Computed example of a mutant assay.
Amino acid sequence: MSGFTMSPSKALAVLASGALFGFGLSLATMIRPEVVLSFLRFQDLGLMLVMGGAVVVTLLAYRVGPRLLRQPLLGGYFHQHVSVWNRDTVLGAALFGAGWGLCGVCPGPAIAGLGTGNWDLAWALAGILAGALLQGWRARA
């Protein structure tokens, strides 16, 4: 992104949010592919609590936050995401789900898992990066 700048307070907020996210993923054991795979096989449903908690916090932040605050605490405005359901969205979601189901690795937990020394996750991240790069090239064509 050319011309992208971030104030020190925003950079600190992003860093703190990322650290909180990574710590939560690690604490919930989502950084261990075998735990995620056992969830996907319906053998261990503990991660359902993690996802449920994330949904509740996100719902509150997106629905209640803009009503309580005139603008975000660090400036700017509240963005509205317009959902676009098309062939690429459905196909991308299916491919992402298949990849996640096959290896039990999602990008966020994989990055957090590297912080615990699980270097095998670097292979999954390399594949995720290659897929994203290929899609970026495809989208430009």
Rank of each mutant, 00 (worst) to 15 (best):
residue 89 T to L: 03
residue 118 N to T: 06
residue 55 V to Q: 13
residue 88 D to G: 03
residue 130 A to P: 00
residue 30 M to Q: 09
residue 76 G to M: 06
residue 81 H to N: 14
residue 59 L to T: 15
residue 1 M to P: 10
residue 89 T to E: 14
residue 98 A to P: 02
residue 101 G to L: 09
residue 125 L to E: 05
residue 63 R to K: 15
residue 136 G to S: 05
residue 137 W to Q: 07
residue 91 L to V: 13
residue 123 W to I: 10
residue 106 C to T: 07
residue 79 H to S: 12
residue 96 F to I: 09
residue 139 A to P: 00
residue 34 E to A: 09
residue 95 L to G: 10
residue 69 L to P: 01
residue 135 Q to P: 00
residue 10 K to P: 01
residue 57 V to K: 08
residue 30 M to I: 05
residue 134 L to S: 02
residue 87 R to G: 05
residue 16 A to F: 04
residue 138 R to C: 00
residue 19 A to S: 13
residue 127 G to P: 02
residue 107 P to N: 09
residue 105 V to T: 07
residue 102 L to M: 12
residue 38 S to L: 07
residue 47 L to H: 11
residue 81 H to G: 05
residue 91 L to I: 13
residue 93 A to M: 14
residue 97 G to K: 13
residue 102 L to E: 04
residue 58 T to E: 01
residue 86 N to Y: 04
residue 26 S to T: 15
residue 80 Q to F: 01
residue 44 D to E: 08
residue 94 A to Q: 12
residue 23 F to W: 14
residue 19 A to I: 13
residue 114 L to D: 00
residue 43 Q to E: 15
residue 67 R to Q: 12
residue 14 V to A: 10
residue 132 A to R: 10
residue 77 Y to E: 13
residue 132 A to I: 08
residue 29 T to Q: 12
residue 87 R to A: 12
residue 119 W to A: 05
residue 39 F to C: 10
residue 11 A to R: 10
residue 115 G to Q: 03
residue 45 L to H: 02
residue 93 A to Y: 12
residue 94 A to H: 11
residue 62 Y to I: 14
residue 64 V to C: 00
residue 18 G to T: 15
residue 94 A to C: 11
residue 2 S to Q: 04
residue 65 G to M: 08
residue 141 A to C: 08
residue 44 D to V: 03
residue 102 L to Y: 12
residue 9 S to W: 05
residue 118 N to Y: 02
residue 67 R to W: 07
residue 133 L to A: 09
residue 23 F to G: 00
residue 8 P to K: 15
residue 133 L to E: 01
residue 64 V to I: 11
residue 51 M to I: 13
residue 48 M to L: 05
residue 47 L to K: 09
residue 35 V to I: 12
residue 112 A to H: 05
residue 119 W to L: 07
residue 20 L to V: 04
residue 39 F to L: 03
residue 99 G to Q: 09
residue 46 G to V: 02
residue 93 A to H: 12
residue 14 V to K: 06
residue 127 G to D: 10
residue 80 Q to S: 06
residue 89 T to I: 00
residue 88 D to Q: 14
residue 48 M to G: 12
residue 132 A to M: 11
residue 93 A to T: 08
residue 116 T to V: 11
residue 3 G to E: 15
residue 91 L to Q: 12
residue 7 S to R: 10
residue 116 T to I: 07
residue 35 V to R: 10
residue 40 L to Q: 06
residue 73 L to E: 15
residue 118 N to D: 14
residue 45 L to I: 09
